[in-house]
């Protein structure tokens, strides 16, 4: 179970390395006290929001800084909603600890394993989350000292998108899922000009609404989450 979790995570872990190195370099250049900037790994643990905090510190007001990072992280509310039923059979400590690790990659990898529940879910989720947290924090720290060592020409930044496409394809269970994915992508593309990556949120909401409207699958009237 643990080995499978690590194997599944690797293709998403490797592309995160250059991003973490970039953040490490940004920490050395920010006007924010370096220790505080580095502590975002522990307090925030969300790459894009961390980079926004660190890089905008010189030019943005405190309020703008906080608002930007919060808006970037709004998609996590949707992850939380989608994952809630899967935490129903988890112990209380897991419900408090688990969400800290609910980053994009962990959500995607767990969405690709809908069959997991109980102890198997917990072991896989925590293995994946702790793995990403450890590698991320270590690599950001390395970036502070050694800077960017992976050439940008390798274009590893494209790898997560390819993986996410694959996860979507393997997870499509019906036409409503397909509609949700298609509309989510299309509306996001049309809303790309919105600030702070809000297009992502708008697209996602439009996709969920489409899937909901297309969904004809009968569901039990009362199901304990």
């Amino acid at each position: 179970m643990t080995r499978r979790a690590i194997t599944d995570a690797l293709p998403l872990l490797i592309p995160a390395v250059p991003f973490a190195l970039v953040l490490g370099v940004a920490i050395t250049e920010t006007v924010m006290p370096a220790g505080v900037a580095w502590s975002t790994n522990f307090f925030v643990f969300a790459g894009a929001a961390q980079l926004a905090l660190v890089s905008l510190a010189a030019t943005a007001s405190w309020l703008t800084l906080v608002a930007t990072a919060v808006v970037i992280n709004l998609r996590h509310v949707m992850y939380s909603a989608a994952m809630a039923p899967r935490f129903a059979d988890q112990p209380r400590w897991m419900r408090w600890v688990g969400p800290f690790f609910l980053i994009d990659q962990v959500f995607a990898l767990m969405a690709a394993r809908p069959e997991l529940s109980g102890r198997d879910f917990r072991r896989t989720y925590l293995t994946t989350g702790v793995l990403f947290f450890s590698v991320w924090t270590t690599t950001v720290t390395a970036g502070v000292f050694i800077g960017g060592v992976i050439p940008t020409s390798w274009r590893l930044d494209v790898a997560p998108a390819i993986m996410f496409v694959g996860i979507v394809i393997l997870g499509l269970a019906n036409r409503a899922n397909l509609g949700a994915a298609a509309v989510g992508a299309l509306v996001c593309a049309l809303a790309l000009e919105l600030p702070n990556n809000l297009g992502l949120l708008v697209g996602a909401l439009a996709g969920v609404a489409t899937g909901f409207l297309m969904d004809q699958t009968p569901i039990a009237p009362e199901v304990k989450s």
Partner: peptide, 11 residues
């Protein structure tokens, strides 16, 4: 049920 495909495709 549609959060994952919608969010991931938008991403």
């Amino acid at each position: 049920r549609h959060v994952a495909p919608a969010v991931l495709s938008a991403m």
